[in-house]
Amino acid sequence: MDVLSDAIAAMRTGRPHSGRRDKYAPWGMRIEDSEGAGFHVVLRGSAWLLPSTGEPVALAAGDVVFLAHGRGYALTSGPDVEPTILRFDSDANPPKSPPPPPPVPDAVPDTVLVCGAYWLDRSRAHPLLTELPEVVHLPSRVGAHRSLQATVELLGAELEEPQPGSDIIVSSLLDTLLLYILRAWWQGEARADRHPTGWAAALADPAVTAALQAIHAAPDHPWTVEELGAHGGLSRAAFARRFTTLVGRPPLAYLTWWRMTTAGRLLRADDTPLRTIAERTGYTSEFAFAKAFKRQYGVAPGQYRRQAS
């Protein structure tokens, strides 16, 4: 199993959405706080990103920007332009942004954007995402992030001229885009820093990565610290120290956290029996599972399922 893919799957709710927006200067739009993680791609022209904290970020054609934490921000044609609040349709589930205005006849837009959002359950946010900075900016550079740029081109083409099957294609491309954004960021962090820390270091460490992959592949297995260390070729003590330092939790604490995160996702997804969920997450009985779940979530599994439905 892939730790990055698992982390996203555990947090994602509903379907992502996106749209192409033609902009005519001066323009500006403000996105308020939300449960979503927003992204923007500049297909043509330029733009300014004004985050809730920090300095404005100049965006050029080909740039990709990702905002993981749901804090409000603005996107404008210039740092001094007063933006208009972009109001979401709160009756939709998940909420959707309003459709873009119709194109101006015979006018060439100054800027063309692809804008969208992924909806996340932040109650069990994976540290892979919580460690991200407020703004992930991936500038366009020749030869850099080729898979990401190819996905952007395909997405832009589908949004510009929808064809039969575009609905599923766009949804799949948005999932692919998110993974490429995060992969590009983490790989860039590992390359840029000779001594990376946190999850940038964890994903670059073969021993820790091997243990994480083992946990994610089989959360139902009765893992021991010795077993997990053996996956990375380390002794129990050396492995435990390295894992705890980089991941932020001891190995078995992370195992328990991931089991409960997986259980929450399964409870939200369908009507799988509690006994089956207990087995899939490494508990020998439904009673033991329910006790562990309530300790983590504060409510019994059945009540959690009813609240999430």
Rank of each mutant, 00 (worst) to 15 (best):
L267G: 10
D2E: 08
Y297F: 15
D89Y: 04
R280K: 15
S285K: 06
A157L: 15
F289W: 09
V3F: 04
A253E: 11
S166I: 09
E160N: 12
D22T: 07
G282R: 13
Q187L: 00
G298K: 11
G38Q: 11
G143S: 06
I277K: 11
Y283L: 10
A192C: 04
P105A: 04
D6Y: 12
G233Q: 07
L203N: 02
R12T: 12
L174N: 09
T244K: 07
G143L: 05
P102T: 12
R295P: 01
D220P: 07
T176A: 11
S34L: 11
A150I: 00
R280Q: 11
G233T: 07
L234N: 00
I277W: 09
D167I: 13
D80W: 05
G188A: 13
Q149A: 03
T197L: 09
D80R: 04
H17K: 04
S5C: 07
R141I: 13
I8R: 12
A61V: 01
G165T: 11
R146C: 01
L132T: 07
Q149M: 01
L255D: 03
A37K: 02
H216F: 15
S166C: 14
Y24A: 08
A210R: 12
T284Q: 13
R15N: 09
I277N: 02
V81Y: 03
A240T: 01
S90P: 07
T272D: 02
E227R: 05
A61E: 11
G70R: 05
T209N: 08
A192Q: 09
G229L: 01
P251S: 04
R20V: 04
S90R: 14
L59T: 03
L159C: 12
S172N: 13
G36P: 04
A58E: 10
I168G: 14
T111G: 04
T276Q: 15
I181H: 01
P100K: 10
I277M: 04
P133C: 07
H145C: 03
L154C: 07
M1D: 10
G156N: 05
L128G: 12
R249L: 12
P301F: 06
V142C: 02
A207K: 13
A288M: 14
V64E: 01
S77P: 04
D89C: 04
L148Q: 00
D270Y: 03
P139F: 08
L75E: 12
L138P: 09
G62K: 00
A300M: 12
